[in-house]
Design a protein around this nucleic acid. Structure first.
Length: 279
DNA sequence: GTTTTCTCGTGTACCCGTGA
DNA sequence: TCACGGGTACACGAGAAAAC
C-alpha cells in the first residue's frame, strides 16, 4: 500500500474535480494528495484507514479527507460492488472565493473543520442529494453545488476521524513499507501476528519497526491491530445478534473472550453485549 | 454466557552509537 | 543530519481463573 503522492487530474479551467468511482472494489492503494476530498459512499462497505485510525464504512457515509492525510478505502472481502462520488478541491479555491466575495465569509471557518479528516453525522440527506446532482450539472452549476455542499458540511454535526497530522511528506520508500505492513495486517488480523513476524517482513528489528510505525501513524503496532480487530467485531455484531460473543471474539482474532471484552471496552467505551443491544 | 481480576511475558519508548 | 540498530526498563496486553 505505497503512499502515492497522488495528483488529482484537473483541467486548468476548473477549480473543483468530480470523480465517480464504479468498480468491484474501492481504490485500495494508500495515498495522499494536497486536495481536500469529499466522498459519498453510494454502495460498498469495508474500512477506511486514515492516518492513525480505522473506521467501518457503509453505504450512505460521507467523509471529508483533509489535505495530505494518508488514507485508503478498503473493501470488505464479501463486497463485490462499490459506487462512490468524490469531490476534490484545494484550499486556494475557497480562499479565492473568500478574498473577492465578502458575502461568502460565512464559509470562513470551513478549514478549521477540515484540518484533519471528518465523518458527517447530520444533514447527510441534503449533502447526498447535492453530491448526486454534481454528476449531471454543468461547470457553473457544479460550482454553486460545491458552495452549497461546503455550507451544509460547515453546519453539520461531525465526527473527527483522526487528530493526527503527519507533517512530513511520506517518501516512496516509506510508502512501500507501509504498503507491506497494512496489506499484511488487513489480510491477517484474524490470526496471531507477532511483532517479530511483521518487523521481519519489512527487514527491520522490532525496535526500529515500533519507532517507524509510531512515527508514521501516531499509533503503536498493537494499538492499530487492536483497532482493526474491534472494528471487525463491530461489523459482526451489527450483522447478526445471534452469534455468541465467544465466536465473535475468535473470528476477530482475539484468543480469549476475557481479552476481547476488555479491549472492546477500551476502544468503544462500552461492553460488547451493550454494543449488541444498541446495534 | 459474560465480565472482572490477577499475573506474567512481550511490546514500546528512550538513550546512545553507527553508518550513509 | 537522518535512519536504523542495540541495550534496557517499564508499561501494558494476553491468558487463566474467579465472580457475576
Amino acid at each position: 500500500m505505497r503512499v502515492q503522492p497522488f495528483a488529482i487530474p484537473k483541467n486548468l479551467n476548473e477549480s473543483i474535480r468530480i470523480q465517480e468511482h464504479l468498480a468491484p472494489g474501492f481504490y485500495n492503494k494508500l495515498h495522499q494528495h494536497v486536495e481536500i476530498q469529499i466522498s459519498y459512499i453510494k454502495e460498498g462497505y469495508g474500512n477506511l484507514i486514515i492516518s492513525d485510525s480505522i473506521h467501518t464504512i457503509v453505504p450512505g457515509d460521507i467523509y471529508v479527507i483533509g489535505s495530505n492525510n494518508p488514507h485508503v478505502f478498503k473493501s470488505a472481502e464479501a463486497c463485490t460492488h462499490t459506487h462512490m462520488i468524490s469531490l476534490f478541491f484545494s484550499q486556494n479555491t475557497i480562499d479565492n472565493v473568500l478574498k473577492y466575495i465578502p458575502e461568502m465569509d460565512t464559509l470562513n471557518d470551513f478549514f478549521s473543520k477540515t484540518e484533519t479528516s471528518i465523518k458527517i453525522i447530520s444533514r447527510k440527506k441534503s449533502i447526498r442529494n447535492k453530491m448526486n446532482q454534481l454528476l449531471e450539472s454543468d461547470k457553473f452549476s457544479r460550482f454553486i453545488l460545491f458552495l452549497q455542499i461546503i455550507k451544509k458540511i460547515k453546519q453539520a454535526e461531525i465526527h473527527t476521524l483522526s487528530e493526527f497530522k503527519y507533517h512530513k511528506k511520506i517518501t516512496a520508500r516509506e510508502g512501500k513499507r507501509m504498503e507491506v505492513i497494512f496489506d499484511y495486517l488487513i489480510k491477517n488480523f484474524r490470526n496471531e501476528i507477532t511483532l517479530k513476524t511483521i518487523s521481519e517482513l519489512v527487514f527491520m528489528t522490532p525496535n526500529a519497526f515500533c519507532r517507524f510505525f509510531k512515527q508514521r501513524t501516531n499509533s503503536t503496532f498493537s494499538q492499530f491491530l487492536l483497532q482493526l480487530r474491534v472494528e471487525y467485531a463491530c461489523q459482526l455484531l451489527d450483522a447478526s445478534k445471534d452469534i455468541p460473543m465467544a465466536e465473535i471474539a475468535e473470528k476477530s482474532g482475539f484468543n480469549s473472550i476475557s481479552n476481547f471484552n476488555r479491549q472492546f471496552r477500551t476502544i468503544k467505551k462500552c461492553a460488547p453485549s451493550s454494543y449488541k443491544t444498541k446495534a
